[in-house]
Design a protein around this nucleic acid. Structure first.
Lengths: 346, 346
DNA sequence: TATTAGCACTCGTTGTTGGTGAGTGCTAAT
DNA sequence: ATTAGCACTCACCAACAACGAGTGCTAATA
């Protein structure tokens, strides 16, 4: 064991073993490996090496007389330094480009990307909805409701509409609300939401005395309308059912817990958040994710960006035993494509 | 077999059998039935009756030496004329009332009802979104986008906002769009959408010559904006994962097909539509639904109404072997409660 | 010294076998 | 019309053996 933790031969062996295991899902033994792996070694020698690999925790034998299976550590080493990425098939790329490029509505675009990811990989595809931090306000409308409530309509980013209901301390007439809206529109239109909030604070301070009551009310209502924004993000998911076909998910109970986690959203969201400020594709293998429900799963995720700024994460969720060499480039390319297409729509 | 298809005794026997089977999921044999069912009959007699019931297709033996299990026909007879409904537990009602009554936003209300249904039954709860036929238009806004497109914002029913993008044949300035909106608002505000469409047609005919080009454009745009409406309905679903715990769903392949159907939505939607104009609770047992994926499932559904008009359907999806005597009243009450609560919010 | 052939051993998988028990249909007695 | 009795069926289970893939270890080999 000279210097490096694993010599060349052991690494190559591990690589072959993992590849083989990923391919057919059976514990792989010394015989098979001796025949299959290009390097000419007898089963006995391979057994020796495998014993070492097992001691170091890279592989593991389900029982005495079975072959070996990669451990989490084994997979980790594999994806980090052994893996040879398969460049994406041209036809896949062009079909992706066609599917994604031909859509002109953000929502449908994201949905389509999610479905592409799941369809191509036969696993679950996930796309985190864009973080709406750099949304720019285009216009705001107020409509009176009963019981001192006001319906606020925000048009942002040229084409998206958000609406919420805020509680006020008195009743406003349609006319008053119109005035308030006009005031806010001239004040804030075209600005990014985060700047708008600052602007509001300034405005409030600086002109507190000079302005009339209605303006003060306007500011206060705007505060409510604009800060209530972040409700924690969300994501799209497609192809969950694909996961039911993997025998490693045979355990119905585990599967159920996984699906529950999908519905709960929180855990998945936290996980994706972790990739938000990574650059490039990131991989969580099995328990690495820190979520028990993802025990037998790996997540391959990549941030996607618009105008050079990361605004979301997309990826694939599947069994630990997945074809990383194909999934990684796919996730990578999809992230790029999605970002680029969103960019065009700005 | 005098006159009626099934004499008193046979019916009672079937009732007992179904109840027993629903309770513990095992094929039930003559011994058990003789002991359990209050009527004093020897196993042998019961066997004779059961043979008749089997000939008539109400029950069925999984194999020679097993007890009997209800068939679809058996369940059907059971729910139609044998079932004794268990009145809903007071505490359940009040908790329902509390959960549902305390919500003041339609969307969250529907979501909560869905979850209630699934939580209480430990099956899947489903609530079809209200048919938006009698929505009344409150206000309409137009905003110019690039490429001859216009963002239309519809405020309907006092507090709901819909928005869509329409394609126009030329570019309109914000001012023009404002005029158009004003015109349409005075023309249509407060009207129900379906009336609005008629109004538009009339307006177009009657004043074709007299009005200026902008008004003509306005009408045309309104046509686009208002008719594109119906995209076929949707529904909320909760507790799908509950279904994974029933051993009759043990078959992963079937389960997958079922979940796929949930995602596809279409089939489920069609099924629910069938209950839209039924009055009271309706039940689809197994294949009766006409959808293969619902083979092993029953659907208990009831329409719910606002202002005396049916606007949607809610229900529960679970294994054929479900406690109909409890589920039916629950679905019934929930539908009433939901309708009433929605009514208040109008 | 590194590799390999040989060998005894482990252990999951598969198939056989026989016993058990719940349940049946039929027949004859009540 | 009901029921006791009986032979029969069949899923379920446990025990058991044969098989085979794979192992670790030891001794021979290049």
């Amino acid at each position: 064991m000279s210097g490096t933790l694993l010599n060349e031969r052991a690494q190559l062996l591990l690589k072959n073993l993992v590849e083989r295991y990923i391919r057919d899902g059976q514990p792989v033994g010394s015989r098979t490996l001796s025949r299959e792996s290009s390097m000419e070694l007898s089963p006995a020698t391979i057994r020796n090496v495998m014993a070492d690999l097992e001691d170091l925790g890279f592989i593991h034998a389900p029982h005495t007389s079975a072959g070996r299976v990669p451990t989490i550590r084994g997979y980790r080493l594999f994806v980090d330094s052994l893996l040879t990425i398969k460049p994406l098939n041209k036809s896949v790329i062009s079909s992706l480009q066609q599917q994604i490029g031909s859509i002109d509505e953000p929502d449908r675009l994201l949905a389509s990307a999610t479905r592409q990811l799941s369809d191509i990989t036969s696993m679950a595809g996930v796309v985190m909805l864009p973080k709406r931090e750099q949304v720019s306000l285009r216009q705001v409308e107020f409509l009176p409701l009963s019981h001192n409530r006001v319906l606020v309509i925000l048009v942002v980013n040229e084409r998206e509409v958000q609406n919420r209901i805020i509680q006020t301390h008195r009743n406003y007439s349609a006319g008053e609300l119109q005035q308030i809206a006009n005031y806010l529109n001239t004040l804030c239109a075209g600005r990014e939401l985060r700047h708008v909030r600052q602007t509001l604070l300034q405005e409030m301070d600086e002109a507190r005395s000079s302005m009339n009551q209605l303006m003060a009310d306007a500011i206060q209502m705007a505060q409510q309308a604009f800060t209530e924004d972040e409700q924690g993000g969300d994501f799209l998911l497609a192809g969950q059912t694909n996961l039911m076909s993997y025998e490693e998910m045979g355990n119905l109970d585990k599967l159920r817990k996984l699906f529950d986690a999908f519905n709960r959203k929180r855990d998945i969201l936290n996980l994706l958040d972790q990739s938000l400020h990574a650059n490039g594709v990131q991989i969580f293998i099995g328990e690495e994710s820190g979520y028990e429900v993802l025990d037998e799963c790996s997540v391959v995720a990549s941030p996607y960006q618009v105008e050079g700024e990361v605004i979301g994460v997309l990826g694939v969720i599947g069994p630990t035993r997945m074809a990383y060499d194909r999934v990684i480039p796919l996730v990578d390319v999809t992230a790029q494509l999605l970002g680029a297409t969103l960019n065009q729509m700005k």
